[in-house]
Write a protein that binds this DNA or RNA. Structure first.
Lengths: 345, 345
DNA sequence: CAGACGAACTTAAACGTTTCACTCTCTTCA
DNA sequence: TGAAGAGAGTGAAACGTTTAAGTTCGTCTG
């Protein structure tokens, strides 16, 4: 893949640069006071209908656009929210980000999106910057469960997604329920010997999924193995070994990304999925339906969760929130092609 | 997929809300003037080393954070950029967004990300809002090639990505070159009868890819068919028909997403990819390596392009830019599993 | 030793809004 | 007829910074 030359060429003409009209200018050319202009544009105060219309017309003619920085100075509200994410290219964050952005827009808020690259240091820097921008609220998907940056955001309303950080309102999916759902599905398909491949266990939500699955499996059959892999399609030796051992006819994998790696590895060693190894994932990332076989997995309503996060944030502007609150969304099984009954023995 | 119940439970305690210290407070408790405090924190002006250190210490102790809105009022620079995208969940935008965010951060800028949902109306609304926020620059991936919102952003430095809109500096990949590269690869693999499945043709960059491919194919073999499909994995009847006709042993598809649909459809009618139909895509979206067979495609350096866009934007702050400039990045062939020599006849 | 100069620091204006408090002019009603 | 009140509008302060212009004081120079 050779590349990276950059060519430059010339295209069509220019556009004019022009200073934006201020409210004062609108007031002056409309022949009213600054206050009246402000009242007219905000629809507040008590103005005659005629004057109001006139002012609005003038504002329109001048192409007036409000200056939110100035307004923020006076009112303390910037009309901006912050979204702090570990890694935008990780396939379930775009869904989340989109939903946050859309629900924010519906309420005329803009969203600063930051990507912390999985680093707590950058997370701190990002939050610091958001605070300096004076955001009205932050939706935070922390890198880990530790409260690294929490102290920084003095007084800024914050909702944590997916993680559990003491002192913060939190939005989560029912991870334990999802893990149980997955295990149940495998058991009902007739599997009795089931393995678990977990993602990194330093995050509570991952432990919850796998613990719930494990306990269900132990009650209804045999837990063949339980191993841990990094959050990646590359499998670690002991994980490969577990798969190769064929001790299980089905595996519950804690994350779709890893599940993909599992399917690829299985197929590479001529283990048929799902005929010889059923695989069920967790997350329902967008490409889960594009693998072959399509991945059966557990979905969580990321979009709804994000929307709820924004809603919770904006609710706070008015009432005083209960920061101890924890909102949990249901997960759901989405059945595709990577699970089937085990072969007769 | 039944779901959407929401449970609420209570967790741990509170955090205190506290007003941020202002520069004036720092000045007062340090026993200096407002100006000195400002100079100290910005490292400007001429202050004695002792006073400066003292002020910084006080600021630190008070947990002082600058108020960027206020600063913006005075300086006209908000330290924010805008990124306008049609659809965050479309798989190549996250890469782009991440890169914009990262390079922006390296220069201490924050990024407002907006998702216009492919609608020109929302595009206009978004840009309007960004202007009101006073962003120092906008990276714009327009919905189409029409200059819908361009007039709104009076004076705000803007760089357009991927599209061509008169009057704007533009960053593009060498789409024609990429199309040729793809055609060349198919021809070199021995194909003589090649089809083209294009994406929506209302966008210049799509026409460029396919035109270039078509003209290369016509020079070196036979253009079996050329059909158009929406930007989706669902294929339209005439596209399916073209594939079913088996008039071509290979197809160039204008977008990876559509290419995926092509592979799925081909396999569904028992056409082996690549044995009976070689497929080459365009974009190199992240999941292109996860399909089976893995998709051979044309990559464009989205990350670099995004970084360059931000750089170009920030360059403008100082010098006066040449708005007619157009920067073109090279594309590259990335060979994977979906292309092979045609079967002997 | 006068004058100039530079270093260190302060004063105050300005950026574009919002909003409280106020004024003025009519109506209305007792 | 006179007071009250409502309706329509204005004046000016305040938000938290930056920065040009000014002040003070000590030191250097000729």
């Amino acid at each position: 893949m050779q590349r990276s030359s950059k060519k430059t060429s010339l295209g069509p003409p220019q556009k004019p640069a022009q200073k934006r009209a201020t409210l004062k200018e609108v007031a002056k050319t409309a022949g009213v006071s600054l206050a009246s202009a402000s009242y007219a544009l905000n629809g507040t105060g008590s103005l005659g209908e005629a004057t109001r219309d006139h002012i609005l017309q003038v504002a329109d003619k001048l192409g007036y656009r409000q200056n939110l920085s100035a307004r923020a100075m006076r009112t303390g509200k910037t009309g901006a929210l912050g979204l702090v994410l570990p890694d935008l290219t990780n396939p379930f964050f775009p869904t989340l980000a989109q939903s946050v952005i859309q629900t924010a827009r519906q309420r005329s808020y803009s969203v600063f999106v930051t990507d912390t690259e999985g680093s707590e240091e950058l997370e701190i820097a990002s939050i610091r910057l958001l605070v300096e921008h004076g955001v009205d609220g932050i939706v935070w998907f922390p890198v880990g469960d530790r409260n690294t940056a929490g102290t920084l955001l003095s007084g800024v309303p914050t909702v944590v997604i997916d993680r559990t950080i003491p002192g913060f309102e939190s939005i989560q999916a029912d991870y334990a329920g999802g893990g149980r759902l997955a295990a149940e599905h495998l058991v009902q398909a007739g599997h009795t010997s089931i393995g678990i491949i977990s993602g990194p266990t330093d995050v509570l939500s991952m432990r919850q999924r796998c613990d719930a699955a494990a306990s269900y499996i132990q009650q209804h059959g045999k837990l063949a193995y339980r191993v841990v892999n990094a959050f990646s399609t590359d499998l670690e030796p002991k994980v490969k070994e577990a798969i190769r051992s064929r001790a299980a006819t089905a595996v519950f994998v804690g994350a779709d990304l890893i599940a993909l790696g599992v399917m690829q590895y299985a197929q590479s060693i001529k283990l048929k999925v799902p005929a010889q190894l059923s695989v069920i994932g967790f997350d329902d990332v967008p490409w889960a339906q594009m693998t072959s076989p399509a991945l059966t997995t557990i979905d969580m309503p990321l979009g709804e969760m994000a929307a709820e996060a924004v809603a919770a944030l904006l609710r706070r502007t008015d009432e005083q929130a209960d920061l101890r609150r924890k909102i949990v969304f249901d997960t759901a099984l989405v059945q595709r092609g990577s699970v089937q009954r085990p072969a007769k023995r």
